[in-house]
Every structure is written in C-alpha cells, then in structure tokens.
C-alpha cells in the first residue's frame, strides 16, 4: 500500500468517524431544545423516503419509469401496502421482494 493510499484512507476514516460520532460524543451532557427534539423525530421518515423515492421511480438513475413494468415501483407499493394494512415489517419486506423478483422474472 502506497503512502498516498494510506493518507486517503486515514483522511476518509477521520472525517467519517467525526461526523458519526459528532452527537454521540455529547452524551447526556447536552439536552436538545424542544424544537430540535421535535425536528429529529422527522429525520427517519424524511431521510428514508428521500433515499427510496428516486430509486423506485428512476431505477436506472436517469429515466422516469412510471408504468406497471417497473418492478421497483410495484415491489415498493406491495411493501407499503403490507406495512400499512398488516403493520408487519418482515412480511412487508418479504412480500415486496417476492413481487419484485417475480415481476422481473416474468418480464425478462
């Protein structure tokens, strides 16, 4: 491993860890104000939706695919429906994946 590689890895490790540890470092020494606490409750929904929506509507990263041939969209809709109707996460994951792979296989 060259010195340059070593420097790249060390640099990337340092910034990544500092970001991840930024708030954990505070521990119980700090109490977030109520507004911040309220805001943080929206982070999971906001981030996860922001990750999923483009993956589902533009599976190749470039083109919109708003039709029934889109296995990503269909699979995600099935996952969403199972989670909403039965409130069972494992079933939502399994059901969505089954439909996704089945659909790709059928359309292939």
């Amino acid at each position: 491993m060259s010195q340059y590689e070593l420097a790249v890895i060390l640099g990337m490790t340092a910034v990544t860890f500092l970001i991840r540890y930024s708030f954990f470092a505070l521990g119980d020494k700090v109490q977030f104000p109520p507004l911040v606490k309220r805001a943080l409750r929206y982070v999971p929904v906001a981030v996860l939706t922001a990750i999923v929506v483009p993956m589902v509507l533009l599976p190749d990263g470039r083109q919109w695919q708003l039709d029934w041939r889109n296995a990503w969209l269909l699979g995600a809709l099935v996952s969403a429906f199972i989670a909403w109707r039965f409130n069972h996460l494992l079933a939502a994951m399994g059901g969505g994946m089954a439909v996704f792979f089945l659909w790709r296989w059928l359309l292939a």
Partner: peptide, 25 residues
C-alpha cells in the same frame, strides 16, 4: 428499498409525518 419502504410506512401515523415524507420525496 423494501425494508426502508416498510419502515417509513409504519412511521406515517400523523398528518405532519405524511407531509414530511411527501416533501422529502
């Protein structure tokens, strides 16, 4: 995608939560 979708939907219990998801998407 399937896992994140399931988690998001299980969190959509209030109207502001739904609006947050729509805005983020």
């Amino acid at each position: 995608v399937a896992t994140f979708t399931g988690i998001v939907v299980s969190l959509l219990k209030t109207r502001p939560m739904v609006a947050a998801a729509i805005a983020a998407g």
